[in-house]
Design a protein around this nucleic acid. Structure first.
Length: 665
DNA sequence: CGCCAAATTATTTTT
DNA sequence: TAATTTGGCG
């Protein structure tokens, strides 16, 4: 390995990459080659003989973590199986898998996602006999999260929900389940209460790096602090202008905290932008200058002004999608771009569906990142629920999900009697069912007992198969066949053959994914617990290589990425800045602005923005007005492009002429 | 006691 | 629009 650090990096990046001992704080503006610097830094460490297993690099998204690892591997041409690059949450899972028994959980714990949590809270509310319409489950979820992570404390207003919260915690523990916040808070507790555990991870990870540091929460920062305070080899990289996760506890003040906790810090500012044209950067700088609470930065570029930013005003969201599709087709011919060069960004997931439909219709290949996860489709969740119950019999939530899916004739009343039986015997629901199946004195009907026996036998059979046989995927495939899941789907969708086909196909895709993972020779320990944990933290099939496709995503999901050409759709007031965000707190306007800033700075060469005059929201058409942020961009940088020229016959002819020419070469 | 069909309600961002 | 909940029927 021969890195040539000095010629590969600029002076500032060089300092960042080569200062591997002691604390380093890097303020890295958008597009300043931050990822490049981090990659070189890790490669450099390896070159200096630091073992890969001693390095810990933390980020916020799986995508960023995977990309970092890949780039280091490319640079070093080594496999690096022991290099830990992961998200905070995945790191938490790793710690918990090894140490959670210190806290009285079993290490086959289940991770509940937000949907699971909502369902659990709903159950608890019902159990406490509180009418459902008296509580807002979504708000309870938020409240509980901020209580757990110590972002807020009980107040006169919220303390009425304390009973629900306590009950919620008891349920989680009893089900041997953890929520996303636990993935940070429990490791933190382990580190604080079990010095031997802390020592173990401290001495293993001698070199720690945190990317997107402005998005760390206090708890996450505390975790890093505990790990690094002794060896002090800690490098954090961030940009306060790109802090877009304050709603889940991110606090860019951690940049200041870091300076306080590591006074001997080496500070570096990366201000040269290598990504965008002068115009795009100028627009971004002007916009973000409107924020009051920020570190002054002077982001500059040596490149040309480039094209102006195009602003288009379609009638409605369908025309907007149409405009984007035809622009993509047009540009891929006239500018020699391919589909991967395009990113289409939106503020909210709901804006994605109209776009998706248009892309399908226009036959433009695309992938959606973020948004509704593949794993949260109903049919997939059902299969996962079976897998979870097989691995963790205490998991009542997943038990409830599948006990009557497919229909086994266990309805509300039967479940109630199972519940009371379980409660009086201090058993989980599944254990209660297995006991009831053979308990002739239990006060239940014969039919219910028969069903219990059948269900117990089914689960026990597959449990033994799953843990004795090599081929876990095949076992799951057989299970899906055994329970006649297809018939279940048919009865759920009586006159919709297509949807049944589609859902069965999804299950097959899921099981194939599992199989590929299980049989991957690079996978050192293919065990089902790892797989289930893994998919709780990801939204996407990571085998799905996004080659040759247009990227559609939310602005949040786009952080850390870049595209030759960016389309920013729905640049309307109430969407960005989002109405609910402003409603919540006037001050949120600054975070919305940062979001807009992140979106703009994803673009390398061209930026298109669209702002509709009307938009379909749910059922009805709503009149909309352009985003106030457009006025914060110097108007000379913007060209207003009028109505859809691509649909004129002349243009069509021209388009096909170009297509022909292209095909001829 | 379970099941079906009509009624209802939900949409900010994510690990 | 689609999934989930509720009320009445078999």
């Amino acid at each position: 390995m021969d890195l040539h650090l000095k010629s590969a990096l600029n002076d500032k990046q060089y300092i960042g990459a080569s200062t591997i001992e002691g604390p380093v704080l890097i303020i890295a503006g958008a597009g300043s080659g931050k990822t490049r610097m981090i990659t070189y830094r890790i490669a450099h460490m390896l070159e200096q003989g630091i073992p890969q297993s001693h390095i810990l690099a933390l980020t916020f998204t799986n995508k960023a973590a995977a990309e970092m690892a890949e780039r280091v591997r490319d640079l070093t041409r080594a496999k690096l199986p022991k290099l830990t690059t992961s998200t905070f949450h995945a790191f938490g899972v790793m710690v918990l898998r090894a140490e959670i028994s210190h806290l009285g959980y079993d290490n086959n714990f289940t991770i509940y996602d937000q949907a699971d949590i909502m369902a659990l809270i709903k159950n608890v509310v019902r159990e406490l006999k509180i009418p459902l319409e008296e509580v807002d489950l979504y708000e309870l979820n938020n409240l509980f999260s901020s209580i757990k992570t110590k972002r807020s404390v009980w107040t006169a207003e919220t303390s009425q929900y304390r009973e629900i919260y306590d009950e919620y915690l008891l349920h989680l523990k009893a089900y041997n389940a953890v929520d996303f916040d636990d993935l940070i808070m429990l490791p933190l507790r382990l580190f604080e209460e079990h010095p031997a555990v802390l020592e173990k991870y401290r001495s293993r990870f001698n070199y720690i790096m945190v990317d997107e540091f402005q998005d760390t929460s206090h708890a996450q920062y505390k975790m890093v602090l505990l790990l690094a305070s002794e060896h002090r080899n800690i490098c954090v990289v961030g940009d306060d202008d790109q802090s877009i996760y304050s709603w889940r506890g991110a606090d860019y003040e951690n940049l200041v905290n870091f300076e306080r906790d590591f006074p001997e810090v080496t500070e570096i500012k990366l201000e040269q932008n290598y990504r965008s044209t002068g115009n795009i950067l100028h627009a971004a700088n002007s916009l973000i200058a409107n924020n009051t609470k920020r570190k002054k930065k002077n982001l500059w570029t040596g490149t040309e002004h480039g094209r102006t930013i195009v602003l288009h005003h379609p009638e409605d969201d369908e025309q907007e999608a149409q405009f984007i599709c035809s622009k993509i087709k047009e540009l891929s011919f006239s500018h020699g771009l391919t589909y991967v060069d395009f990113g289409v960004l939106v503020r909210t997931n709901s804006l994605l569906s109209t776009l998706e439909q248009a892309f399908l219709q226009e036959q433009i290949p695309y992938t959606v990142s973020g948004g509704q996860s593949f794993f949260s489709r109903k049919e997939i969740k059902d299969v996962i629920a079976y897998m979870r119950l097989l691995t963790n019999p205490d998991d009542n939530m997943n038990f409830l999900r599948i006990i009557n899916t497919p229909r086994r004739g266990i309805g509300r009343v039967s479940i109630e009697s199972l519940r009371s039986y379980a409660k009086s015997h201090h058993l989980s629901l599944f254990s209660a069912v297995s006991k009831l199946a053979y308990d002739m004195n239990a006060p239940i009907r014969d039919r219910l007992r028969d069903t219990c026996r059948e269900f117990t036998e089914l689960i026990e059979l597959y449990k033994s198969r799953l843990f004795s046989k090599r081929d876990m995927a095949k076992t799951i495939r057989n299970l899906v066949g055994d329970i006649d899941y297809r018939d279940h789907l048919i009865s759920e969708h009586p006159d919709n053959e297509r949807i049944v086909q589609w859902k069965m196909k999804n299950i097959e895709i899921f099981i194939n994914m599992f199989e590929r993972w299980e049989k991957n020779p690079d996978n050192l320990d293919p065990n089902i617990y790892e797989y289930l944990n893994r998919i709780s933290l990801t939204t996407k099939d990571d085998n799905d290589k996004e080659t040759g496709k247009v990227n559609l995503m939310t602005i949040h999901a786009s952080k850390g990425l870049e595209f030759n050409t960016v389309f920013l759709a729905g640049v309307e007031d109430h969407i960005i800045p989002h109405a609910r965000s402003i409603e919540e707190d006037e001050m949120n306007i600054e975070e919305e602005r940062r979001l807009f800033y992140v979106a703009i700075t994803r673009a390398q060469q061209s930026l298109y923005m669209t702002s509709c005059s009307q938009r379909k929201v749910m059922r009805e058409l709503i009149d909309t007005i352009p985003s106030r942020f457009i006025e914060e961009i110097p108007q000379e940088l913007i060209t207003h492009e009028e109505a859809d020229a691509e649909s004129t016959p002349e243009q069509a002819v021209d388009f096909f002429a170009k297509l022909k020419a292209k095909l001829a070469t």
